[in-house]
Simulated scan of single mutants.
Amino acid sequence: MAKLQVKMPEDFLLKLSKLGDKTDEIIPKVLESGGEIVLEKVRSNLQAIVGSGTKEKSRSTGELISSLGLSPAKVDWNGNFNVKIGFKEPRRSGESNAKIANIIEYGKSGQPPKPFLKPARRASRKACIDAMKKMFEQEVENL
Rank of each mutant, 00 (worst) to 15 (best):
E105I: 00
L4C: 14
G110V: 09
V38A: 07
G107M: 07
D76H: 07
F136H: 10
P115N: 02
R59Y: 03
G79A: 06
K3D: 13
S44E: 01
M135Y: 11
E139W: 08
L70E: 02
A127L: 10
S93R: 09
I129T: 14
V75M: 04
L64Q: 06
K3C: 15
S71G: 10
E32T: 02
P28F: 07
A127Y: 13
P113T: 05
D130W: 11
K84W: 08
G79E: 02
G107Q: 00
L31K: 00
E10N: 13
A131F: 02
S93Q: 04
M135D: 12
Y106G: 01
P119Q: 05
A98M: 11
P115F: 01
M132K: 10
K99Y: 09
N102F: 12
S66V: 09
K108C: 10
S58T: 10
D21G: 09
L19W: 02
L31V: 04
I85L: 09
N45R: 00
V140S: 03
L31Q: 06
L13K: 12
P112R: 06
R122V: 13
V6W: 11
L143H: 05
V38Y: 00
L13V: 09
E141R: 14
G51E: 04
M8I: 07
E56T: 07
A131E: 15
S60R: 03
Q5K: 15
G110P: 05
S96I: 10
D21V: 03
A120I: 14
Q111C: 07
G110E: 09
L14F: 12
R125H: 02
P9K: 07
N102Y: 15
N80E: 06
Q138S: 14
R125Q: 13
I104N: 00
D130H: 14
G51D: 06
F87C: 03
D21E: 09
E40K: 00
S33P: 01
P28Q: 13
K74S: 04
I37T: 08
S17Q: 12
G53E: 06
F87N: 02
S58H: 03
G62M: 08
L143V: 12
S109H: 06
P113Y: 02
A98H: 11
A101P: 10
K74A: 10
N102M: 11
P115A: 12
P112V: 06
L70A: 04
F87I: 08
N45P: 01
G86T: 14
S124M: 11
T23K: 09
V83K: 01
A123I: 13
S17E: 12
F87Y: 13
V42Q: 01
K3T: 10
P90Q: 13
S66D: 15
A127T: 11
L64N: 06
D11R: 04
K118C: 08
T23V: 12
I103E: 05
E137G: 15
G94N: 08
P115E: 11
S17P: 04
R92F: 11
I49P: 00
R91Y: 14
N78D: 08
K108V: 06
I103N: 03
L46E: 02
Q47D: 03
E105S: 01
N45A: 03
K118N: 15
S71P: 04
M135K: 15
S124F: 11
S60N: 15
G86P: 03
P90M: 12
Q47W: 00
E139T: 06
Y106A: 05
N78Q: 05
G62W: 08
I100Q: 11
K18G: 15
E141A: 13
R121K: 08
V38C: 02
